[in-house]
Amino acid sequence: MQLSGNKHIPASIDKAYTLLTDPEVLTRTMPGLKRLTPISEGAYAADLEMGVAAIKGKYQGTMRIEDASPPHSYRLVLDGQGPGGFVSVNMSVEFVSDGDEASVSYQGEAQVGGTIASMGQRMISGVANYLTNQFFQNVAKEAIQAKN
């Protein structure tokens, strides 16, 4: 499944880059992300609790930030495993200044397998879009709070 999109964060690209790579901010803003424990430079063990109405599960996995080139780009690699199957995401994230704001583009691929994949890709992408929007809304709130 292709993942791509473009969002605006009301902050400079330096600030936006810092927010999106700060494990504490991510734990606060990413729906379902409970804990990120550093395991090495740019790599974290992740505990996720995904809840989509009736479908709920605890997922464990790793999150790595690779090819980091602050504040312009990095690559996000996520692997997770849980009762419904596995999820792996590999996506590049780019930051470009757009006036007072940072324009964040992401593009990559997500692979979903196991029982959860039998729900059908269309529903998974609908849910993924919803969660991604929530995540960026939360990050935008953090950016505004950091300004004040």
Binding site: G51, A54, I55, K56, G57, P83, G84, T115, I116, M119
Partner: peptide
Amino acid sequence: PENSKVLAGGHSLLPLMKLVLAQP
């Protein structure tokens, strides 16, 4: 509230529970 589910007719929820996709 996070770990409880309301059961009505059960014809959507119970199949999901049997697939272990839902674990209230």
